[in-house]
């Protein structure tokens, strides 16, 4: 079965499975464990114009069927990424998505402009939804006007395909999706993590160094499915779905909710090879539920499709 996914502005994925930003480093880290050439794409860890230190440890905490993290977008900055990681990325044949972050609209513009000059970057994922930083990030993602301004600034400096990553931490996440689409976003990726907290009994304080963290893993999948469904019902651009995917059946669920492709994250920590297993079994799973092609499954559960 042909698993190719054709997305706006000529972005082509050889299959709908991408590594989710923040769980796969900047590219080289997992290369010893995963043949990157077999992936649909990789969204690298968030990149800012200047280096960011990240949050104090502990940065991860296990919860029932979930993982709380408070990394705080530690990254070495765009110049180090270009110098140290892009040469490796040039040796692999998979779509490279640069996840970009900033404290201000100007910083988003700077990093988009700089990385836009690098031919190896196939697309951008504008991260306005990370719950783990104090300034910027999620504050843009919770206000449709500010989200619009970030996307507008990025659109002005790049012709590459741009997706915007949506926060699940608002009552109606599709309002932000509609705003960034109006500002020129080519795609929506959803969802980022849900804000959460755990208490360390012995230390008598929040378990994470950053106090709050972002919840990922299977615990969030129903929330993600619902948000993807709502966005895909309202917004014309393609949706990239994610949140707790562990199997090809989970991928199918996102596809049927309206996603054209997905990102896989937390499960990679336990099973680095799981994305490849999902790619291998996806055709069987599509067939088992009566889909002759990938595109047939996309949006199959949306009301507009049912009415046909």
């Amino acid at each position: 079965m042909d698993l190719t996914v054709r997305l706006p502005r000529g972005l082509v994925l050889k299959n709908p499975i991408m590594a989710a930003s923040g769980t796969f480093g900047f590219g080289p880290e997992y290369a010893a464990y995963v043949d990157l050439n077999r992936l649909g794409g990789v969204s690298v860890k968030g990149i800012s114009p200047e280096p960011w230190r990240g949050n104090p440890p502990p940065r991860v905490w296990e919860t029932p069927a979930g993982l709380l993290n408070s990394i705080g977008l530690q990254n070495p900055g765009m110049e180090v990424f270009l110098e140290e990681d892009v040469p490796f990325l040039k040796t692999v044949d998979t779509a490279i998505v640069a996840n970009i972050i900033g404290h201000t609209v100007e910083e988003y513009r700077q990093v988009a402009e700089r990385l836009s000059q690098e031919p190896r970057i196939d697309a951008f994922e504008v991260n306005i939804s990370c719950p783990n930083i104090k300034a910027g990030g999620i504050t843009f993602g919770h206000d449709p006007d500010q989200a619009f301004r970030v996307m507008e600034a990025v659109r002005a400096v790049t012709e590459k395909p741009v997706m915007v990553k949506i926060s699940p931490n608002t009552a109606e996440p599709w309002i932000v999706a509609e705003a960034v689409t109006a500002a020129g976003a080519d795609m929506i990726s959803a969802i980022n993590t849900l804000v959460g907290m755990a208490i360390d009994f012995k230390a008598r304080r929040p378990a994470l160094g950053g106090r709050t963290g972002g919840l990922s893993g299977p615990a969030v999948k129903p929330v993600a499915i619902r948000i993807v469904y709502e966005i895909a019902s309202r917004v014309k651009v393609p949706v990239i779905g994610m949140g707790g995917i562990e199997s090809a059946e989970d991928v199918l669920e996102f596809l049927m909710a309206g996603a054209q492709a997905v990102m896989v994250g937390t499960i990679t920590f336990q099973h680095p090879e799981r994305m490849l297993e999902i790619i291998e079994t996806l055709p069987e799973v599509l067939n088992a539920y009566g889909f002759a092609s990938l595109s047939e499954a996309v949006g199959a559960a949306l009301p507009s499709r049912k009415e046909h």
Partner: peptide, 17 residues
Amino acid sequence: EQRMGCGIGACLACVVP
């Protein structure tokens, strides 16, 4: 010792000052 995620250098969870 530190609480750890991926174990192979990708997630930046297990950091120390």
